[in-house]
């Protein structure tokens, strides 16, 4: 038996991705309209953000530009989720219609096969938006640009993405266990809106929840301390890449366990 190694999976992923993008591009109108929609969504939430800060110069010691930093950072961190893991949104439909079984007949990892199937181009627009916002905030805050900081930023973004993806994995995989899991998805998706805010604005109770139960604080808050509060970086920030990997792995196990269970009953 040939080993199903990382290069093998990378190659398959590339194949599927390129094909998917090619076929998506052939629907030009759909592509442009959804991109424009995405831009408007982001513009309007940015406008709401701006108006709030016209009235409050700072929130719990966080300045407008620092908040903007968080905002851009969280948008960027969400981009991989949006682009690469969008099929999780369709999971429940596959499961309820019984079509999920087709993912079980290939000699490759079920989770990989399922996730690889869809690439959402809209996410790129959102990523670009986040990048511009982040660079703008970065400039205004006069943060340094060094090689080390860029590496830290990339690592922080990766970590944040892992958390976000893991949360959505957990939420999507609930459809293997319960009916009406759509609400879980929507709720989990709502949580990521809170990711844009420093968790110090929440009550201690919610701070605990957002750190240890639904760890959205790791999506933007903890990583951003690395750049914004350089003199006082908590331990959790340093641990976050590790926690992120563990959390993602747990979500993967939960997902796969669900997939196995599902095929145990469905017809």
């Amino acid at each position: 038996m040939k080993t199903l190694s990382l290069p093998y999976y990378a190659h398959i992923y590339k194949m599927i991705l390129i094909q998917d993008i090619k076929s998506k591009m052939s629907y030009r109108a759909d592509f442009f309209i959804s991109t424009i929609g995405m831009i408007f969504t982001n513009l309007s939430s940015l406008a709401a953000f701006y108006i709030t800060f016209l009235n409050f110069p700072s929130v719990m010691g966080w300045s407008y530009h620092e908040m903007l930093f968080l905002y851009g950072f969280s948008l960027l961190a969400l981009t991989p989720l949006q682009c690469l893991f969008d099929n999780n949104w369709s999971l429940r439909n596959f499961v309820y219609r019984g079509d999920f079984i087709k993912y079980c007949f290939r000699p490759i990892n079920t989770y990989f096969y399922f996730i690889s199937e869809v690439f959402d181009l809209k996410g790129l627009g959102q990523g670009a938006f986040g990048l511009v916002t982040l660079i703008y905030a970065w400039n205004k805050l006069q943060l340094p640009v060094t090689f080390l900081i860029i590496v830290q930023l990339l690592l922080a973004l990766t970590t944040a993405s892992l958390f976000m993806i893991a949360i959505m994995n957990f939420a999507a995989a609930t459809c293997f266990y319960i009916i009406n899991s759509g609400y879980v998805m929507v709720t989990a998706n709502k949580f990521r809106d809170y990711a844009k805010y420093p968790i110090t604005i929440f009550e201690p109770f919610f701070r605990f929840i957002f750190t240890f139960i639904i760890p959205i604080a790791f999506i933007a808050y903890y990583p951003s301390l690395l750049f914004l509060r350089t003199n006082n970086i908590p331990l959790l920030t340093w641990l976050s890449p590790l926690i992120g990997v563990v959390f993602f792995y747990l979500s993967y196990l939960f997902w796969m366990h669900g997939a196995r269970n599902y095929t145990g009953t469905g017809s």
């Binding site: 094909q19 998917d20 019984g98 079509d99 079984i101 087709k102 007949f105």
Partner: peptide
């Protein structure tokens, strides 16, 4: 498996 296509839809 019956009418459930396993091919990539698009």
């Amino acid at each position: 498996f019956g009418q459930r296509s396993q091919l990539w839809w698009s």
